[in-house]
Amino acid sequence: MGFKLLSKLLVYLTASIMAIASPLAFSVDSSGEYPTVSEIPVGEVRLYQIADGVWSHIATQSFDGAVYPSNGLIVRDGDELLLIDTAWGAKNTAALLAEIEKQIGLPVTRAVSTHFHDDRVGGVDVLRAAGVATYASPSTRRLAEVEGNEIPTHSLEGLSSSGDAVRFGPVELFYPGAAHSTDNLIVYVPSASVLYGGCAIYELSRTSAGNVADADLAEWPTSIERIQQHYPEAQFVIPGHGLPGGLDLLKHTTNVVKAHTNRSVVE
Protein backbone atom coordinates (compact mmCIF):
# COMPACT_ATOMS: atom_id res chain seq x y z
CA MET A 1 0.00 0.00 0.00
CA GLY A 2 1.47 3.42 -1.01
CA PHE A 3 2.09 6.05 1.66
CA LYS A 4 -0.34 8.52 0.10
CA LEU A 5 -3.11 5.92 0.07
CA LEU A 6 -2.29 4.92 3.64
CA SER A 7 -2.41 8.55 4.80
CA LYS A 8 -5.80 9.06 3.21
CA LEU A 9 -7.06 5.82 4.75
CA LEU A 10 -5.94 7.02 8.20
CA VAL A 11 -7.87 10.27 7.72
CA TYR A 12 -10.97 8.32 6.70
CA LEU A 13 -10.70 5.94 9.65
CA THR A 14 -10.19 8.81 12.08
CA ALA A 15 -13.27 10.57 10.77
CA SER A 16 -15.29 7.34 10.91
CA ILE A 17 -14.31 6.68 14.52
CA MET A 18 -15.27 10.23 15.48
CA ALA A 19 -18.62 9.92 13.78
CA ILE A 20 -19.39 6.74 15.73
CA ALA A 21 -18.12 8.12 19.02
CA SER A 22 -20.09 11.37 18.72
CA PRO A 23 -23.01 10.90 16.34
CA LEU A 24 -24.79 14.09 17.34
CA ALA A 25 -21.79 16.38 16.97
CA PHE A 26 -20.24 14.93 13.85
CA SER A 27 -21.54 14.83 10.33
CA VAL A 28 -18.35 14.05 8.43
CA ASP A 29 -18.44 14.89 4.75
CA SER A 30 -18.82 11.68 2.76
CA SER A 31 -18.13 13.35 -0.58
CA GLY A 32 -14.51 12.22 -0.75
CA GLU A 33 -11.02 12.20 0.69
CA TYR A 34 -9.17 15.15 2.16
CA PRO A 35 -7.83 17.27 -0.73
CA THR A 36 -4.09 17.02 -1.37
CA VAL A 37 -1.63 19.45 -2.92
CA SER A 38 -1.68 17.70 -6.30
CA GLU A 39 -5.44 18.17 -6.57
CA ILE A 40 -5.59 21.93 -5.98
CA PRO A 41 -4.16 24.34 -8.58
CA VAL A 42 -2.59 27.49 -7.16
CA GLY A 43 -5.31 30.14 -7.03
CA GLU A 44 -8.08 27.69 -6.22
CA VAL A 45 -9.46 26.63 -2.84
CA ARG A 46 -11.20 23.50 -1.60
CA LEU A 47 -13.52 23.15 1.39
CA TYR A 48 -13.75 19.94 3.41
CA GLN A 49 -16.54 19.45 5.93
CA ILE A 50 -15.21 17.91 9.13
CA ALA A 51 -18.32 18.18 11.28
CA ASP A 52 -21.68 19.90 11.39
CA GLY A 53 -20.82 23.57 10.98
CA VAL A 54 -17.05 22.98 10.79
CA TRP A 55 -14.95 22.99 7.63
CA SER A 56 -11.30 23.20 6.75
CA HIS A 57 -10.21 25.29 3.79
CA ILE A 58 -7.28 24.11 1.73
CA ALA A 59 -5.25 26.19 -0.72
CA THR A 60 -1.86 25.84 -2.40
CA GLN A 61 0.94 28.30 -3.01
CA SER A 62 4.22 28.32 -4.94
CA PHE A 63 7.28 28.94 -2.80
CA ASP A 64 10.95 28.49 -3.72
CA GLY A 65 10.08 26.48 -6.81
CA ALA A 66 7.71 24.05 -5.09
CA VAL A 67 3.98 23.98 -4.40
CA TYR A 68 2.73 23.57 -0.84
CA PRO A 69 -0.73 23.06 0.66
CA SER A 70 -2.07 25.24 3.46
CA ASN A 71 -5.00 24.64 5.79
CA GLY A 72 -7.38 26.96 7.59
CA LEU A 73 -10.68 26.59 9.42
CA ILE A 74 -14.27 27.78 9.01
CA VAL A 75 -16.74 27.54 11.91
CA ARG A 76 -20.42 28.39 11.83
CA ASP A 77 -21.50 30.97 14.40
CA GLY A 78 -25.28 31.18 14.20
CA ASP A 79 -26.13 32.65 10.81
CA GLU A 80 -22.55 33.81 10.28
CA LEU A 81 -19.14 32.25 9.78
CA LEU A 82 -15.87 32.64 11.66
CA LEU A 83 -12.77 32.21 9.50
CA ILE A 84 -9.48 31.02 10.92
CA ASP A 85 -6.50 32.10 8.80
CA THR A 86 -6.38 33.40 5.26
CA ALA A 87 -5.76 31.18 2.25
CA TRP A 88 -2.15 32.40 1.80
CA GLY A 89 -2.37 35.43 -0.45
CA ALA A 90 -4.88 37.85 -1.94
CA LYS A 91 -5.85 35.71 -4.94
CA ASN A 92 -6.37 32.59 -2.84
CA THR A 93 -8.31 34.46 -0.17
CA ALA A 94 -10.64 36.00 -2.75
CA ALA A 95 -11.18 32.50 -4.14
CA LEU A 96 -11.86 31.28 -0.59
CA LEU A 97 -14.62 33.84 -0.05
CA ALA A 98 -16.17 32.91 -3.39
CA GLU A 99 -16.05 29.20 -2.54
CA ILE A 100 -17.63 29.81 0.86
CA GLU A 101 -20.45 31.78 -0.76
CA LYS A 102 -20.97 29.00 -3.31
CA GLN A 103 -20.87 26.02 -0.95
CA ILE A 104 -22.05 27.36 2.41
CA GLY A 105 -23.95 30.53 1.57
CA LEU A 106 -23.38 32.29 4.89
CA PRO A 107 -21.39 35.50 5.39
CA VAL A 108 -17.90 35.52 6.88
CA THR A 109 -18.07 38.29 9.48
CA ARG A 110 -14.91 37.71 11.54
CA ALA A 111 -11.49 36.24 10.87
CA VAL A 112 -8.61 35.31 13.17
CA SER A 113 -4.99 34.97 12.04
CA THR A 114 -3.05 32.49 14.17
CA HIS A 115 0.41 33.97 13.57
CA PHE A 116 2.19 36.64 11.56
CA HIS A 117 3.51 34.68 8.57
CA ASP A 118 2.08 35.30 5.12
CA ASP A 119 0.28 31.95 4.98
CA ARG A 120 -1.90 33.22 7.87
CA VAL A 121 -2.23 36.96 7.18
CA GLY A 122 -1.70 37.15 3.41
CA GLY A 123 -5.15 38.14 2.17
CA VAL A 124 -6.24 40.11 5.25
CA ASP A 125 -6.69 43.19 3.05
CA VAL A 126 -9.09 41.20 0.84
CA LEU A 127 -11.08 40.19 3.91
CA ARG A 128 -11.17 43.76 5.19
CA ALA A 129 -12.40 45.03 1.81
CA ALA A 130 -15.17 42.43 1.94
CA GLY A 131 -16.36 43.78 5.30
CA VAL A 132 -14.81 41.05 7.43
CA ALA A 133 -13.52 42.13 10.86
CA THR A 134 -9.97 40.80 11.14
CA TYR A 135 -8.36 39.83 14.45
CA ALA A 136 -4.99 38.70 15.78
CA SER A 137 -3.07 38.88 19.02
CA PRO A 138 -1.12 42.10 19.72
CA SER A 139 2.07 40.09 19.22
CA THR A 140 0.94 38.87 15.80
CA ARG A 141 -0.07 42.37 14.73
CA ARG A 142 3.28 43.78 15.84
CA LEU A 143 5.33 41.03 14.18
CA ALA A 144 3.32 41.30 10.96
CA GLU A 145 4.09 45.02 10.83
CA VAL A 146 7.80 44.40 11.39
CA GLU A 147 7.79 41.74 8.66
CA GLY A 148 5.96 44.01 6.23
CA ASN A 149 2.99 41.63 6.07
CA GLU A 150 -0.70 42.53 6.12
CA ILE A 151 -1.93 43.48 9.59
CA PRO A 152 -5.28 42.36 11.06
CA THR A 153 -7.28 45.32 12.36
CA HIS A 154 -8.35 44.22 15.83
CA SER A 155 -6.33 42.92 18.79
CA LEU A 156 -7.21 39.76 20.71
CA GLU A 157 -6.59 40.37 24.39
CA GLY A 158 -5.86 37.81 27.10
CA LEU A 159 -3.42 35.68 25.10
CA SER A 160 -0.05 37.05 26.17
CA SER A 161 1.14 34.29 28.55
CA SER A 162 1.74 30.60 27.87
CA GLY A 163 -1.40 28.64 28.71
CA ASP A 164 -3.80 31.57 28.22
CA ALA A 165 -7.16 30.72 26.64
CA VAL A 166 -10.10 32.92 25.63
CA ARG A 167 -13.49 32.15 24.15
CA PHE A 168 -14.12 33.74 20.77
CA GLY A 169 -17.60 32.96 19.50
CA PRO A 170 -17.87 29.22 18.74
CA VAL A 171 -14.17 28.50 19.38
CA GLU A 172 -11.56 28.73 22.08
CA LEU A 173 -8.27 30.42 21.26
CA PHE A 174 -5.23 29.08 23.11
CA TYR A 175 -1.69 30.37 23.36
CA PRO A 176 0.53 27.37 24.16
CA GLY A 177 3.78 29.31 24.17
CA ALA A 178 6.41 29.74 21.49
CA ALA A 179 6.74 26.99 18.89
CA HIS A 180 6.79 27.50 15.09
CA SER A 181 6.72 31.19 15.97
CA THR A 182 6.59 33.10 19.22
CA ASP A 183 2.99 34.19 18.61
CA ASN A 184 1.33 31.01 17.27
CA LEU A 185 -2.22 30.36 18.48
CA ILE A 186 -4.20 27.11 18.63
CA VAL A 187 -7.93 27.00 17.89
CA TYR A 188 -10.33 24.49 19.43
CA VAL A 189 -13.95 23.84 18.45
CA PRO A 190 -15.49 22.32 21.61
CA SER A 191 -18.79 21.38 19.96
CA ALA A 192 -16.96 19.06 17.56
CA SER A 193 -13.69 18.16 19.37
CA VAL A 194 -11.73 19.67 16.47
CA LEU A 195 -8.26 21.05 17.20
CA TYR A 196 -6.66 23.37 14.66
CA GLY A 197 -2.95 23.41 15.38
CA GLY A 198 -1.84 25.73 12.62
CA CYS A 199 1.86 25.69 11.82
CA ALA A 200 2.76 24.60 15.35
CA ILE A 201 1.63 21.08 14.37
CA TYR A 202 2.99 18.92 11.53
CA GLU A 203 1.24 16.33 9.40
CA LEU A 204 2.37 12.72 9.90
CA SER A 205 4.20 12.51 6.57
CA ARG A 206 6.48 15.40 7.44
CA THR A 207 9.95 14.36 8.53
CA SER A 208 11.82 17.68 8.45
CA ALA A 209 11.27 20.82 10.48
CA GLY A 210 11.02 23.09 7.45
CA ASN A 211 10.92 26.84 8.06
CA VAL A 212 12.14 27.39 11.61
CA ALA A 213 13.59 30.87 11.11
CA ASP A 214 11.17 32.34 13.65
CA ALA A 215 10.77 29.22 15.80
CA ASP A 216 11.70 28.60 19.41
CA LEU A 217 13.02 25.05 19.07
CA ALA A 218 13.80 24.70 22.77
CA GLU A 219 10.30 25.73 23.88
CA TRP A 220 8.32 24.02 21.11
CA PRO A 221 8.03 20.56 22.77
CA THR A 222 6.85 22.17 26.03
CA SER A 223 4.24 24.18 24.14
CA ILE A 224 2.95 20.99 22.53
CA GLU A 225 2.69 19.41 25.98
CA ARG A 226 0.47 22.31 27.01
CA ILE A 227 -1.78 21.67 24.02
CA GLN A 228 -2.04 17.98 24.91
CA GLN A 229 -2.84 18.77 28.53
CA HIS A 230 -5.42 21.43 27.66
CA TYR A 231 -7.25 19.43 24.97
CA PRO A 232 -6.91 15.71 25.77
CA GLU A 233 -10.40 15.14 24.37
CA ALA A 234 -9.55 16.45 20.89
CA GLN A 235 -10.42 13.90 18.21
CA PHE A 236 -9.62 15.58 14.88
CA VAL A 237 -6.37 17.55 14.59
CA ILE A 238 -5.63 19.84 11.64
CA PRO A 239 -2.00 20.85 10.97
CA GLY A 240 -1.10 24.08 9.24
CA HIS A 241 -0.06 22.18 6.13
CA GLY A 242 -1.05 18.73 4.90
CA LEU A 243 -3.33 15.95 6.03
CA PRO A 244 -5.21 15.99 9.36
CA GLY A 245 -5.26 13.17 11.88
CA GLY A 246 -5.56 12.62 15.63
CA LEU A 247 -3.59 13.62 18.69
CA ASP A 248 -0.71 11.51 17.40
CA LEU A 249 0.22 14.53 15.28
CA LEU A 250 1.33 16.28 18.47
CA LYS A 251 3.79 13.57 19.44
CA HIS A 252 5.01 13.33 15.85
CA THR A 253 5.68 17.07 15.75
CA THR A 254 7.66 16.88 18.98
CA ASN A 255 9.76 14.04 17.56
CA VAL A 256 10.52 15.98 14.36
CA VAL A 257 11.44 19.13 16.27
CA LYS A 258 13.69 17.25 18.71
CA ALA A 259 15.40 15.39 15.86
CA HIS A 260 16.08 18.68 14.11
CA THR A 261 17.45 20.21 17.30
CA ASN A 262 19.71 17.22 17.93
CA ARG A 263 21.08 17.34 14.38
CA SER A 264 21.76 21.06 14.74
CA VAL A 265 23.71 20.46 17.96
CA VAL A 266 25.81 17.72 16.33
CA GLU A 267 26.53 19.86 13.28
Rank of each mutant, 00 (worst) to 15 (best):
V108S: 04
F63Y: 09
G242M: 00
P239Y: 00
V146P: 09
S27V: 07
A90N: 09
E101P: 15
L82R: 02
T86G: 02
V212G: 11
G122W: 10
I58H: 15
K4L: 04
F236K: 08
V112L: 11
A59Y: 04
S56C: 12
Q229W: 14
S205H: 05
V124G: 07
G43P: 06
G169P: 05
H115M: 00
G53D: 14
A133Q: 14
F26V: 08
S191A: 06
S223G: 08
A215L: 04
K251Y: 15
E80L: 11
V237P: 00
P190I: 04
T207Q: 12
N262D: 13
R120H: 04
A213M: 13
V166M: 09
E150H: 05
D248Q: 11
T254W: 12
T261N: 09
Y231A: 03
G210E: 10
I224T: 04
R167A: 06
T153D: 06
P23K: 12
Y68H: 06
S223M: 02
S31V: 15
Y34S: 15
P41L: 09
D29P: 12
I17R: 05
Y196T: 02
L217I: 13
Y231W: 13
E80R: 12
F116T: 03
L204Q: 05
V11N: 11
Q235E: 06
A209T: 11
Y34N: 06
I40Q: 09
Y12F: 09
I20L: 10
V45E: 03
A136Q: 03
A66E: 10
Y48H: 07
I100E: 01
R226V: 14
E33S: 12
T261K: 05
Q61G: 11
E39N: 08
V166R: 08
D119R: 01
D125I: 07
Y231V: 08
E44C: 10
T254H: 12
A259H: 06
G32S: 08
S191D: 06
R110P: 04
G123P: 03
I50D: 02
G148K: 11
S27D: 11
D85C: 00
V132N: 04
W88C: 00
V28D: 07
L9M: 06
K4E: 15
L204I: 12
Q228F: 04
H260Y: 07
F236M: 10
D216Q: 09
E39W: 10
P152A: 14
E157Y: 09
Y135H: 14
G158W: 10
T36F: 12
D125M: 12
A15S: 12
R141Q: 08
S62G: 10
D52E: 08
P221W: 06
V265R: 10
I84Y: 00
Y135F: 06
S264Q: 07
D125S: 07
L185K: 01
E219V: 08
A165E: 12
G123Y: 03
P138N: 07
Q103E: 13
T207A: 10
L204N: 07
I151V: 15
N262M: 11
P190G: 06
P138E: 15
A200R: 02
G242T: 03
L24N: 08
Y188H: 09
K8G: 09
V265N: 14
L159W: 03
E147G: 10
S205W: 06
I20F: 06
N184W: 01
P138I: 15
L96H: 01
V187T: 06
G123T: 03
P170L: 07
P107K: 15
G89S: 12
G169F: 04
G242Y: 02
L5G: 06
S193T: 08
H241C: 00
D248A: 08
L247W: 06
L96P: 02
L247M: 07
R167F: 07
S191F: 07
T93Y: 00
T14Q: 07
V187P: 02
F174Q: 03
V11H: 05
T109Q: 14
E99M: 09
Y12P: 04
P176N: 00
V187A: 09
L9S: 08
P221S: 10
N184L: 01
E267F: 06
A178V: 11
K91H: 14
F174T: 02
G198K: 00
A234W: 02
S70I: 02
P190L: 05
L5C: 07
L97Q: 04
L47D: 03
